[in-house]
């Protein structure tokens, strides 16, 4: 008889379902948790993340809002200060700009401005990224902007495990946490341990080990970067792939340790190149590991254009595995 390998029980799950499961669990575990946003209730969520939750938790805790991003985000801030643990859902990062006043001027400042008397334990989730042909007002990647702001934390779950686990850790955090869900990941399906739970939000993860070059990325670009690493491996180049996971605060230690080992780096970021998160990472590498580098650092970012509608132009505007491969080979003079 063949020896049976005992594995932890796993479930087949999508990224969307993993987030829904995380919300459900949080609602069951903590009565202070509630979710509000546009069409989260009866409609089931713009990307169907919250489908079925209204029936389970009722309209008080799965709270449909009017199209008042600033108003309900600010209400989330007030409710958080008032002792609740709200999850605010903003349909897309583009819409979040209507709430930017509340996020920056209130959520990010109140602890400091009040001399540490009031904190804002609020979680804001939103969709980000291109790829669904939604054109120039629904497709941008502005998480790098938010990562500019002291006082908030910025997460970008790229895996099922992080989609499932980051929410609870974020809700447990005494400060505002923004979670960016790349729209192209919602349908991603895979296996997840049935007992998957909270994950840390402090450390970047090495998703593939290598010694020749570090490919540093996050969110939707992770999978393209892993594809690029696979292609590079076929040509004998061992690329290390870092998933940042948390965009603020950045895990410098993991980034620098990897680059110190591989001596080369490509940053892959769906944000626009100028003034991007990628720029920040390059700067940190130069500041902290300049003498360990064997050559220049490269970036694969979005082209400096509003995201266009036609598929071929949209795809040309954002990072792709081939671009990452080309950038890596260029650095290695191959």
């Amino acid at each position: 008889m063949a020896k049976r390998i005992i594995k932890a029980e796993t479930v087949q799950i999508t990224y969307r379902e993993a987030i829904r499961k995380a919300i459900c669990e949080a609602m069951h575990q903590d009565e202070r948790v509630f979710l509000m946003g546009e069409d989260v209730g009866r409609y089931g969520g713009c990307y169907a993340v919250t489908k079925g939750l209204l029936k389970e938790f009722g309209p008080e805790r799965i709270r449909d809002t009017p199209l008042s991003e600033s108003g309900f985000t600010g209400a989330g801030i007030g409710a958080a200060i008032g002792g609740m643990r709200p999850i605010v859902e903003l349909m897309t990062v583009n819409f979040s700009l209507l709430a930017m006043d509340q996020i920056l001027n209130n959520a990010a400042t109140i602890r400091h401005m009040s001399g540490n008397q009031f904190g804002v334990p609020l979680v804001i989730r939103m969709a980000t990224g291109a790829g669904r042909q939604l054109a120039a007002q629904h497709s941008h990647s502005l998480e790098g902007w938010y990562a500019h702001i002291p006082g908030i934390k910025v997460l970008a779950p790229a895996t099922l495990e992080d989609a499932r686990g980051m929410l609870w850790t974020a809700l447990d955090d005494p400060d505002p946490v923004l979670i960016f869900e790349n729209v192209m990941l919602y349908n991603m399906e895979g296996e997840l341990p049935a007992n998957a739970g909270p994950v840390n939000i402090e450390k970047a993860a090495i998703r593939r080990e290598g010694r020749d070059i570090s490919l540093i990325t996050y969110g939707g670009s992770l999978w393209k970067t892993l594809e690029a690493a696979e292609a590079l491996a076929r040509e004998g180049i061992k690329a290390e792939v870092i998933d940042l996971r948390t965009l603020r605060p950045l895990d410098d230690t993991t980034i620098i340790a990897s680059v110190a080992k591989t001596r080369r780096a490509v940053i892959v970021d769906e944000g626009w190149r100028s003034g991007s998160l990628a720029s920040e990472i390059v700067t940190r590498i130069v500041e902290q590991a300049f003498w360990r580098l064997d050559g220049p650092i490269a970036r694969v970012c979005s082209e400096e254009v509003p995201i266009p509608y036609p598929q071929h132009l949209e795809q040309a505007a954002i990072p792709q595995a081939e671009k990452v491969v080309a950038a890596a080979k260029n650095l290695l003079s191959k």
Partner: peptide, 13 residues
């Protein structure tokens, strides 16, 4: 900017 916050405090209550 204070009005949404006040609304949220009242929502919590």
């Amino acid at each position: 900017g204070g009005l949404p916050m006040a609304t949220g405090l009242a929502l919590a209550d």
